[in-house]
């Protein structure tokens, strides 16, 4: 059913809106396109999606508005029920959980951040952050202590008595993040958390977010409509269109070999050299070819640009972060990535 290392796995999930979606879904095959379905008076918000989110991995779901990404994340957290297929969270089928078990799961394992923050306007920062703890019945003192911890973690200490409306947008989202972290969730959903912020703040929040993830190593589902944001943050990206996943892969692979024309359109204007890492270009080493000092596989082609230009070897060995050789890159290929070679 589910590979042991995945935190969430989603099997042929469907979400249809319309008069009798279950019956309709039973009557169609998975070959039905979005237009076929809407011709029958139904909206296919999520169409036959199968995904796995591994433990400690950040999966970014990218898509334009109306592509079904927000619906998908709500299916994964069972804010809405799937019409067909199933979602497993740590081995449990979400659809089979009772209301009580579902609440229990949310109280112990899940956290979610919302695009428009979803803060309760008549509670202070502290009360907002402590809200999930209050819901599971922790006593006031323990609540306060834990809430202060996460408030500090997101850099809002000193503001805990403020009300949401007294904070800037970026600060409000920090409260949202703190609240979602208060119960120490294993799974973290973020639904376009930075989209409502202006570009400079967005950038700052992304850095902040990467810092937190480094520290906490949660399993993350991150929704965005911003391709650059996806590239910056993701371990893997799932690109959605009309409710279906077009491609799900690492950022490197997506920019190097887009699976469909739709995905290619996104990658066209991307500076691939900033995305592609040396380890991805590395090919198995033969006996003779790669000699000399290896380069760090975790560096992007852009970061290696100077070295690549000055390099005399055609094949350059690549090492992982422990110094083990993992392969070699072809200089010409790397330069193609750097300058955009002939197709």
């Amino acid at each position: 059913m589910q590979s042991p290392e995945s935190a969430i796995s989603c099997r042929q999930a469907w979400k249809l809106f319309g008069s009798d979606p279950r019956k309709y879904l039973a009557s169609i095959s998975s070959q039905h396109t979005y237009t076929d379905i809407s011709g029958d008076g139904y909206i296919a918000a999520v169409r036959d999606v199968s995904l796995d989110i591994n433990q400690g991995e950040m999966l970014v779901i990218m898509g334009l508005s109306g592509s079904g990404k927000s619906t998908l994340v709500r299916c994964l957290s069972r804010l809405i029920d799937v019409t067909g297929g199933s979602v497993f969270v740590e081995g449990q089928d979400l659809a089979e959980l009772s209301e009580r078990d579902l609440i229990e799961l949310r109280r112990s394992k899940m956290g979610m951040v919302f695009q428009s923050f979803g803060l309760l306007p008549y509670r202070t920062v502290l009360e907002n952050v402590a809200f999930p703890l209050e819901m599971r019945g922790q006593d006031r003192h323990a609540r306060r202590e834990r809430a202060m911890e996460v408030i500090k973690l997101v850099g809002l200490d000193g503001r805990e008595d403020y009300f949401p409306r007294e904070l800037s947008g970026g600060q409000q989202q920090r409260v949202g993040i703190a609240r979602s972290l208060a119960i120490e969730p294993d799974i973290w959903f973020l639904d376009e958390p930075f989209s409502a912020l202006d570009p400079l703040i967005r950038r700052e929040m992304q850095d902040e977010f990467l810092r937190l993830q480094e520290m906490l190593a949660k399993s993350i589902v991150f929704i965005t409509h911003d391709f650059d944001e996806a590239l910056r943050l993701a371990d893997r990206i799932a690109i959605m269109k009309d409710g279906a996943v077009e491609q799900c892969d690492t950022p490197d692979k997506i920019v190097l070999s887009p699976a469909t024309e739709y995905v290619a359109k996104f990658t066209e204007d991307v500076d691939k050299a900033r995305v592609v890492h040396a380890r991805v270009l590395a090919m198995p080493i033969g006996e003779d070819d790669a000699t000399g000092a290896p380069v760090d596989g975790d560096r992007t082609v852009r970061e290696l640009a100077r070295q690549l230009l000055e390099e005399t070897r055609e094949k350059i060995p690549v090492a992982d972060r422990h110094g083990e050789l993992i392969g070699a890159i072809r200089r010409s290929e790397a330069l193609n990535v750097l300058f955009g070679g002939e197709k």
């Binding site: 804010l79 109280r107 923050f117 979803g118 309760l120 306007p121 509670r123 809200f131």
Partner: peptide, 29 residues
């Protein structure tokens, strides 16, 4: 009451009574 606020309440693990008492009614203030 904005749906996102209700969803955020649910994701904080509110039961339906808690949702009404702590989320919906105060937001409809």
């Amino acid at each position: 009451v904005p749906p996102e606020i209700v969803e955020s309440g649910k994701m904080c693990g509110s039961s339906s009574w808690q949702l009404l008492r702590h989320v919906r009614v105060p937001t409809a203030r």
